[in-house]
């Protein structure tokens, strides 16, 4: 563990807590893409299947349980509990255009042709594009609530910090995972436009409107 990965995990944790608090306090999921949240639930489910087979640490296990649990609660909030406030007319991204290519790529490009490894690879590839329905929805509605912007900033920062973690681990531990690094770069690049708007607008108290 290093500071970049720890701060990254905390940023990820914060993003999920911000989202749940927004939903619970405002009793509304307005502006939130249910499709992205479904993709995140798939990402965690396919990535953490080793939850019961391999133990790394209390931290690792508890974070995995938290991520899986909260991802399903979030999907439940959107499609059940706060369904009347779900803006399905603006959440129209065709996720099959993400899942099918990502599934094919995971099958072809992986570190080891085993079920667990292919599912892990699928999860890594899928996570890199899972935010697209949310960014698409923000561009369609034309703006995002500031709390949603904070959620997106924390979520985008987590993988950017993981990139620093991989640089650190490469130089100090000789650890290198090309699949995770490439997918992490794609994932972080997708946030660049948003990061720019967040820093130039939200931090000055303005609202975000995409496309800029």
């Amino acid at each position: 563990m290093n500071i970049f990965r720890l701060v990254g995990d905390m940023s990820h944790l914060l993003a999920i807590i911000i989202l749940l608090m927004k939903m619970w306090k405002s009793r509304s999921v307005a502006g939130i893409s249910g499709k992205s949240q479904i993709l995140f639930a798939i990402v965690f489910t396919t990535r953490y299947l080793d939850l019961f087979t391999s133990f790394v640490s209390i931290y690792n296990t508890s974070m995995k349980v938290f991520f899986i649990g909260t991802s399903y609660v979030t999907v439940y909030f959107i499609y059940q509990h706060f369904k009347p406030t779900y803006d399905s007319n603006h959440d129209t991204f065709r996720v099959e255009f993400l899942i099918v290519p990502v599934g094919g790529l995971a099958f072809l490009v992986n570190h080891e042709f085993s079920l667990l490894e292919i599912l892990w690879t699928f999860s890594i590839y899928l996570e890199s594009v899972a935010i697209l329905p949310q960014l698409f929805m923000v561009s369609k509605t034309g703006e995002a609530e500031s709390i949603t912007s904070h959620y997106l900033f924390a979520l985008g920062s987590y993988r950017a910090l993981y990139l620093l973690n991989w640089i650190y681990r490469y130089y100090f531990e000789g650890f290198f995972d090309l699949i995770a690094v490439v997918a992490g770069c794609v994932q972080t690049i997708l946030y660049c436009d948003f990061f720019y708007l967040y820093i130039t607008k939200v931090l000055k108290g303005k609202k975000i409107s995409l496309p800029a």
């Binding site: 990965r5 995990d9 990820h12 080793d50 391999s54 790394v56 640490s57 690792n60 974070m63 995995k64 991520f67 570190h111 080891e112 085993s114 490894e117 892990w120 993981y162 973690n165 000789g174 650890f175 290198f176 995972d177 699949i179 995770a180």
Partner: peptide
């Protein structure tokens, strides 16, 4: 090196 060692990252 390939990374099919046990995954210790989230």
């Amino acid at each position: 090196s390939s990374s099919s060692e046990p995954k210790d990252e989230l």
